[in-house]
Amino acid sequence: MNPERSRATRSPPAEKPHAAGWGHLLPWTAALAFYFLGADFLGLGTNALIMVLFALSLDLVLGYAGIITMGHAAFFGFGAYAAGLCAIHVTNDPVTGLLIATAAAGILGFVTGTLILHTKGVTLMMLTLAIGALVAEVANHLRDYTGGDDGLHGIRMAPLLGAFRFDLWGHTAYLYTLAVLLAWFALAWRIMRSPFGRSLDGIRQNVRRMRAIGTPVWWRMVAVYSLGAAMAGTAGALSAQTTRAVGLTALELLASGTVLMVLILGGTRRLYGAFAGAVVYVVVQDFAAQVDPFRWMFVIGALLMAVVLFLENGLMGIIDFAAARARSLWREQTPR
């Protein structure tokens, strides 16, 4: 069998309800528990949640639909600038800003998606790179609005829902981010099990087959690309609102590479893979990036290579393996 095929490209599994229940409970409980236990690191935790959302958005586009994009950071950055500019010039209500940024990034995804998704393979990859570079150039050039290299500062958010101030310790920011993540996650979970989601899974595996059953392949791809862009835009907006700053680095190739690494490290097409990858990312980044940014690049690069060579199903693959082992051991030890 072709080794390319033998990579785990399972369809969304038909889990038993109770197993799925436990699987869901664990990560969210952990995220909530962190709020109480990790009070000194809530900023870090918020970053991790934002990274989860960002990687999740890439999972829809790349993991499920198989659109290989090297420019996904464009949407994150676009959402971040949209939210930042909205807070400074229009309204500093966080939820309004979030919705505007999400819509803006989604529209950018729709426009660029309709343009480039006719192509495939290397050409498509180059086009995503070119669009990423174009968006970064625009942001760099419009320094009157974006602050250019200095970044966008002076973002002040109004209290969330008019009641909860963004406090110095990041309590509000953390719970706000967690709530938004949960909403997007539930949506993504539902969508990826829908006929639409299953058709994306089919498009990744075999475009010809999908054409042969009458699937409007191009429209489906544009749809998921826009959806992923909107989601990445939300992540960018959360980042702008909770850190009160946006930098050009959000748009750089390194950012696209980082989110790819997080997703691949965690495991694609799992949705929860993004969680595993992002947690590792934030912890490692906290250690490495404090030293200097280049050491950080080394870590990302080495991790990317290691995952490709040794860990094709990502961390979730290991978790699956461990869970299967544990179950079989349990069965051996419990008498019938």
Partner: peptide, 27 residues
């Protein structure tokens, strides 16, 4: 030209979904 990593049942079901024009349904 089939979806090799998808169960047989689902290979047929997604075709039926397209025929019934519910391939767009997300929620």
């Amino acid at each position: 030209t089939l979806l090799a990593e998808t169960p047989a049942l689902e290979n047929v079901a997604i075709a039926i979904a397209e025929r019934k024009r519910i391939g767009w349904r997300m929620l």
